[in-house]
């Protein structure tokens, strides 16, 4: 009887805990949706005067819409370039085996991007990169590339080198090595790297503010402007819009992994992680 009541108590406790965590995670989004759908919300009212879609209409049009598209384009460019450069650099790192090279790769990750950009602003202004999309792209790419290189370098195994030797012994050149060893090794990580580096750019505020000098307008920059101006509904809509690419990418990654499980029976990236967690 005692063990039965303890287990029932444990189940209830677990449910309460999960519910609390769920509510805490979901609550901010619920509030944001509520905020974004209202207008004429006067202090100290708890509910807005009217529920309409004015903030959402503005979110997709005018300067806000333009900033969103520009930010998306910048994120895509940073993601692709960082991933490609990171992959190339990680190979150079692996081939050199140099510890000093490794330190160089980690350097950008040790510094705050905004502070680094602030220190370099004067130089960037002299070479006319400050206040330009190119300048923001280059500086964001430095951090993205560093992240990508460290990520891909961690995938290398001793068997990777042996398979490369095998491909060359069997008559393959560089193209065959990339096609049959390098790219298959990192295939699972490519979407993840693209996603993370894109997010790095999409959500960045500090770097874009310092290097962009106010001329580079992304959705994140517009969000902070709206907060400063007191446009609560508009800011809420922009915040939710900021989360959309991340949500879409997560869903795509999940569907891809589930598809991999169904067609091949092998684990996807999240499936493999799930198995490890279950084992623990």
């Amino acid at each position: 009887m005692r063990s039965g009541s303890r287990s029932a108590g444990g189940v209830i406790g677990r449910c309460v805990l999960l519910l609390s965590v769920g509510v805490l995670c979901v609550l901010p989004y619920v509030v944001l949706v509520w905020l974004s759908c209202g207008s004429g919300w006067e202090w100290p009212r708890l509910v807005p005067l009217r529920l309409d879609g004015v903030a959402w209409q503005r979110a997709f049009s005018g300067s806000n819409g333009r900033a969103a598209w520009q930010g998306a384009g910048l994120s895509l460019a940073v993601a692709v370039c960082s991933t490609v450069w990171g992959l190339l650099i990680s190979r150079c790192w692996s081939e050199s085996g140099s510890g000093r090279f490794r330190v160089l790769l980690y350097l950008p990750l040790l510094t705050s991007p905004a502070i680094a950009a602030g220190c370099l602003f004067d130089l960037m202004a002299r070479i006319q990169l400050a206040g330009s999309w190119l300048g923001v792209f280059l500086v964001q790419s430095v951090y993205g590339t560093s992240f990508a290189a460290v990520l891909f370098a961690g995938v290398r195994e001793p068997s990777s080198w042996r398979r490369e030797q095998l491909v060359r012994t069997l008559g393959g050149g560089d193209v065959a090595v990339w096609r049959h060893v390098v790219l298959p090794d990192v295939r699972g990580l490519l979407p993840l790297c693209l996603f993370q580096t894109a997010l790095l750019s999409w959500l960045d505020y500090g770097l874009t503010t310092v290097v962009g000098g106010g001329r580079v307008q992304t959705l994140t920059m517009r969000l902070f402007s709206q907060i400063r101006e007191g446009g609560v509904s508009q800011a809420a809509a922009s915040s939710l819009l900021l989360t959309v690419p991340a949500l879409v990418a997560l869903l795509l990654l999940r569907w891809r992994d589930e598809g991999a499980v169904m067609t091949t029976g092998g684990p996807g990236l999240t499936g493999g992680l799930r198995r490890e967690l279950e084992r623990m």
């Binding site: 042996r162 398979r163 095998l166 012994t169 069997l170 049959h180 298959p184």
Partner: peptide
């Protein structure tokens, strides 16, 4: 083909093929 080919306990097969 190649002059020599080395095989050991690890088959080194290509998992994407």
């Amino acid at each position: 083909g190649p002059i020599s080919l080395y095989l050991d306990q690890e088959p080194l097969l290509f998992e994407h093929l």
